[in-house]
């Protein structure tokens, strides 16, 4: 398969999404909610009512119609429902965790809460290493927060599932409310692998964001490479520092799959041809312009026409478009955009 075929596939995918966005968005939310609810059912499905598949489908249908922020609230309530069935102390601890997330994160009206919902799914598929890099490529640095929170919540639920017998009343610790609460706090605070992963993901997002914003060639590719290296170094160093051993094979496989996903994101979102960079300089009455234009790689549509701003347009045409569309731009500058240096 040659590169032109890939560009053609990309254009068709973009056209398809643009045409059917009104169906695909709610369908996507429905699928995501359904998968998350079944993951919760598989890990901490202690409440028989909330394990009913029909009820989960109905909840997912509701999630398809509400904003993404509400989906996280609904998922949070389902988690609390399961934890309450296990033990009151687990429900209290779960409520405290969710309350802290609400107080310290959600008050900023986050737009990247989708990352929070994708994290548990990504961890199950072992592709969670792609999330901080994707967040850095596509969002602002504040997107590091939902990724880290997703890691913490997933880690908390994993520990609950691993100690369900104790938390439901088994053993010496299980007989005392205070001891159970202490145990739960210890599982959160002393889960070094979880905290190291969250911290590494935050740093990775910031590094990727900083590099991809640089005005250099292949900034996105460099950002992906830097982000992946940061993850490897951070997780390995953090793991050896705190004695949290990592599965090398799982880490390698996860990073390889994540690199594939990150390359796909770059291909879909930011595909430019750095070989055809054009640098122009011109001035008007107010400013002197130094412009570097990097053409996007596009393929003709079904009508055979290239989209505006595509590879075939000359620098002069691009400048004319700039001057023409600038409010108050003078038409007499259309022959070249003013004086060239």
């Amino acid at each position: 398969m040659n590169i032109a075929a890939l560009y053609e596939i990309r254009r068709k995918i973009q056209d398809y999404f643009m045409k059917y966005e009104y169906i695909l968005k709610p369908a996507g939310k429905f699928l995501l909610s359904l998968i998350l609810l079944f993951i919760i059912k598989g890990d901490i499905g202690y409440n028989a009512i909330l394990c009913n598949s029909l009820l989960l489908v109905i909840i997912s249908l509701i999630c398809a119609l509400v904003p993404v922020g509400f989906i996280s609230a609904i998922i949070g309530l389902v988690i609390l429902g399961h934890l309450y069935r296990l033990s009151l102390e687990s429900a209290v601890m779960g409520a405290v965790v969710l309350l802290l997330i609400f107080l310290l994160y959600f008050r900023f009206s986050p737009r990247d809460v989708l990352l929070l919902l994708l994290t548990p799914l990504a961890i199950k598929l072992n592709i969670h290493y792609a999330l901080p890099v994707a967040a850095g490529l596509l969002c602002a640095p504040t997107a590091a927060a939902p990724v880290a929170i997703g890691v913490l919540v997933t880690g908390f639920l994993e520990k609950i599932a691993a100690n369900e017998i104790l938390l439901s009343g088994g053993g010496e610790v299980g007989r005392s409310t205070l001891l159970k609460l202490r145990f739960l706090i210890d599982t959160m605070v002393q889960n070094h692998r979880m905290w190291v992963t969250a911290l590494v993901f935050v740093l990775t997002t910031i590094i990727v964001y900083a590099i991809r914003r640089l005005a250099i060639s292949n900034a996105w590719l460099l950002a992906i490479i830097a982000g992946t290296l940061a993850e490897v170094i951070g997780l390995t160093a953090g793991g050896s520092r705190f004695g949290a051993r990592l599965d090398g094979v799982a880490l390698f496989m996860g990073l390889m799959m994540s690199l594939l996903i990150e390359w796909a994101i770059m291909f879909m979102k930011f595909n430019v041809d750095y070989r055809l960079i054009e640098s122009v300089q011109f001035e008007d009455d107010d400013y002197y312009y130094f412009v570097k234009a990097v053409p996007k790689v596009t393929v003709p549509g079904e009508d055979g026409l290239l989209p505006a701003g595509s590879l075939s347009e000359t620098t002069a045409d691009l400048k004319n478009q700039f001057v023409k569309h600038r409010p108050g731009g003078r038409k007499d500058q259309a022959d070249g955009g003013g004086k060239k240096s």
């Binding site: 405290v96 309350l99 802290l100 107080l103 310290l104 008050r107 205070l178 609460l181 202490r182 706090i185």
Partner: peptide, 23 residues
Amino acid sequence: FGSLITYTVAFFVIFALYAAYHF
């Protein structure tokens, strides 16, 4: 101001956890 309020509430929640741990 909003952050001050939410931070204070969060601080008291964490303090309550600490109190439960070192009761």
